[in-house]
Every structure is written in C-alpha cells, then in structure tokens.
Amino acid sequence: MNIYWWGVLGTSAIAFALKYIGHSIPERYLSHPKIQATNVLIPIVLLSALVGVQTFTEKTQLILDHRAAGLGVALIALFLKAPFPIVVLSAALSSALLYHL
C-alpha cells in the first residue's frame, strides 16, 4: 500500500470516527468553553498555515514563484466578495499566465 492509499484510508477512518463519537457521547464531555474556543481557532491556524506552505514553499525550501501571484489575485477577489469558484479560478488563471511568460 503506497502513501496515497494510507492517506485516503487513514483520513477517512479517523474522519468518520470523529463524527460518530460526536454523535455518541454525552454533551457535557466536550461542552467546556475552553474546548469550544479552541475548536473555533484550530481551523483558522491550520488553513492559514496551509495557505502559506502551499504558496511559498517547495519541499522544505522557501520559494517565491508564480503561485504567489495567484494567491495575490485570490486575495483581491475575496476582498471584492467574489464567490469561491471565482476566487480559485482567478488564482489559477493568473498563476498559469505568469508560469508561461
């Protein structure tokens, strides 16, 4: 089994387990305000870190290339309140354009 299969099956198994456990345990176990507060923050840090790493790194090196231009355009699109598909498409198009120049 290669790394991709491990990724697919491991992620799927844990994703379902987390959902099912949530449906099955008494509410008091996780309703603590500190857990609730942290729960809101975790997606913010992980998704932000992914934005940075996917844009400015290649393996373990920092790098500035065409992807940064794509991200800049995505940022502008979000400021202009563009819907998600437009954000992604405009980033892809501008990055591809720079890649071919």
Binding site: Q54, A74, V87, A96
Partner: peptide
C-alpha cells in the same frame, strides 16, 4: 502548474 492548479490549492485554502 501549466493550468495554475498549483496556485488553485492555496487559493482554495484561503477561500
């Protein structure tokens, strides 16, 4: 990269 997919992924995370 030729189609900008490598930039679409961080843009998706940003979205």
């Amino acid at each position: 990269a030729s189609w900008g997919l490598d930039a679409a992924v961080p843009a998706a995370f940003l979205g």
